[in-house]
Simulated scan of single mutants.
Amino acid sequence: MKKWQKGLVTILGASGLLLAACGNQAASSDSASDTASSETASEGLMDDGVLTVGVTAGPHEEIFNFIKDKAAEDGFEIELVVFNDYVKPNTALAEGELDINSIQTGPYLETVIADTGYEITPIFENITIPMGIYSEQYDTVDELQEGDTIAIPNTPSQEGRALLVLENAGVITLPEGLGIDATVDDIEENPLNLEFITGDPAQFIAQLPDVAAAGINSNYILDAGLSAKDLAIAMEDSEDTTWVNLVVARTENAEDPALAQLEEYYKTDEVKAFIDETFQGAVVASW
């Protein structure tokens, strides 16, 4: 499992340096101490009484709405800002418009940080939205027939994810160690001579009647109002933490007490039961 390194808040250390620099003048030192204390207090995420959380529409929004109501009973106020894309939430977080966000996996976050230089960091893992192989024709992968057509996402990493699900189900064999970088061109063994086509995963729901099966991230299944349990013939291993989603904050706030409190509200048996009952396997709790 990937171990995420949290950033450390350096406010107290900075205050100490300021006091040392002014140590020759008692009055100045007192003034500097008061100023540093005031600045430290202003850094708290809950100083305004509200934690502002960016979420994508769908599972993240629904789960946080559930948590929001429970936390409010203790006076812990959460304000949700809902996004329909994966770019703006990180920009808004980096620019201070959000306190945290809950929208993304670790690999995606790494790419964002590498591309933008944003000083944002994961705080805790929350859910996984697994990749599945879905079919309207079959109930299991064992029913696949010679020459069947399988639709595979053409987006980076998602193509590899879908192929790995098929490999784990014993349908195909991929080169050892290739992992999520695998493409349909890398398939080494294909005993059923399946035909693989690639395309936009957002279109796969409409295409399900025309193919034997399709690799679809479960959020599309949820958006279409379909049941993952009814349509899935193979699913990503729920124990694989590669694609776990993360709650992310600015690095300077990584040790803020409000975030530890939020994690306690999030990681409860009650929230896990809500996830299980609401999403029926299309979303899995990470704890």
Rank of each mutant, 00 (worst) to 15 (best):
K3N: 03
G7M: 06
V9F: 09
A27W: 00
A27Q: 10
S28N: 00
A32Y: 01
S37Q: 03
D48M: 01
A57H: 14
F64L: 13
N65A: 10
D69S: 04
A72S: 15
E73F: 02
D74F: 04
G75I: 09
A92S: 03
L93Q: 03
E95L: 01
G96V: 10
E97M: 01
I103D: 05
I103S: 14
E125P: 00
N126Q: 15
T128A: 13
M131I: 11
T140G: 08
V141D: 07
D142A: 13
E143P: 07
E146I: 06
E146W: 10
T149V: 07
I150T: 02
P153N: 11
V165I: 06
L174V: 15
G177P: 05
G177A: 06
D185V: 07
E188K: 13
E189M: 02
N190H: 11
L192R: 02
N193V: 01
E195Y: 00
I197M: 11
A202N: 14
Q203V: 05
F204W: 09
A212C: 12
A214Y: 04
I216P: 11
A224Y: 14
G225H: 15
A228V: 06
D230G: 01
I233C: 06
A234T: 02
E236S: 12
D240I: 05
V244H: 14
V247S: 05
V248I: 15
V248A: 08
R250H: 00
R250F: 02
L259T: 11
E263W: 06
K272I: 13
K272E: 14
A273C: 00
D276M: 01
E277P: 06
A285C: 07
